[in-house]
């Protein structure tokens, strides 16, 4: 059900959290995570910032390295304590009962405020049953809330590992439309594809017709699958920003 060593991840996250929150907050958090008691689990998830605070956590380079060894691509740098606390809480959830596990976590998505959504989408790479969250991830990409999109797009290995080509292409286009930094998207080059190049070139023509500009990374993504002459011809329409 998990594609990585869950015990190692829980232990490492526990160490990092203990270094970043007060002892009484840790005493509380270390006793949470029982998803058979849905109400308590939901309340713990919601009240996390009341317990942990919202300070940005510190993490040693060794811990970051270890994290990347346990779950490649997964990073928690610059996270706030409540975000980490929520992801830790989710990592504690027993996944044996697949239906219950999915229902409880999906319900958190349905009632989430912004910071909760950030934490939930950040947790996708460490949740059980990776293939179960594909539709949820695609739904997240439809969000119009900047921080939520960044939680999915930036330094998150889940989309590149799990999304279909069509959903991946939507992610890239949404990132462009919302002024995201494309270079922070995990798997941008690995998932590049001819259909995306076609969409990007159409988009470049449309922008040119409107007298608007495009980001330079667009050409980088389109070029491997597009005739150089065509790229140059479209580029002539306007200058890049």
């Amino acid at each position: 059900m998990f594609g990585y060593d869950t015990e190692a991840l829980r232990n490492l996250l526990a160490t990092i959290i203990q270094n970043n929150i007060k002892p009484d907050a840790w005493a509380w958090l270390s006793n949470q995570g029982d998803i058979t008691n849905t109400a308590t689990f939901n309340a713990a998830f919601a009240m996390m910032p009341r317990k942990t605070g919202k300070a940005v956590i510190t993490i040693t380079p060794e811990q970051a390295q270890e994290l990347n060894t346990i779950r490649p691509g997964f990073t928690i740098e610059d996270w706030t304590a409540d975000r980490l606390g929520r992801v830790y809480l989710l990592s504690q959830a027993n996944a044996t009962d697949k239906e219950r596990y999915f229902a409880v976590i999906e319900n958190l998505f349905l009632a989430a405020e912004m910071n909760e959504l950030v934490a939930l989408y950040s947790a996708l790479p460490v949740l059980a049953y990776a293939d179960q969250w594909v539709k949820r991830c695609a739904e997240g990409i439809r969000s119009n809330i900047g921080s939520v999109l960044e939680a999915i797009m930036y330094h998150n290995p889940y989309p590149a590992e799990n999304l279909s080509e069509a959903a991946w292409n939507q992610l890239v286009m949404k990132a462009i439309f919302t002024d995201k930094q494309l270079t922070l998207i995990t798997g941008l080059n690995e998932r590049n594809n001819p259909e995306l190049a076609r969409i990007l070139m159409d988009f470049a023509r449309e922008r040119g017709a409107a007298g608007r500009s495009v980001v330079p990374e667009l050409w980088h993504l389109a070029s491997p699958f597009t005739d150089a002459g065509i790229v140059n011809a479209v580029k002539q329409q306007y200058t890049t920003i």
Binding site: M114, I145, G146, E150, F177, T178
Partner: peptide
């Protein structure tokens, strides 16, 4: 609220 929040449109 969130310094990373940006308007999502085509702007």
């Amino acid at each position: 609220i969130d310094q990373s929040a940006k308007f999502e449109g085509n702007s």
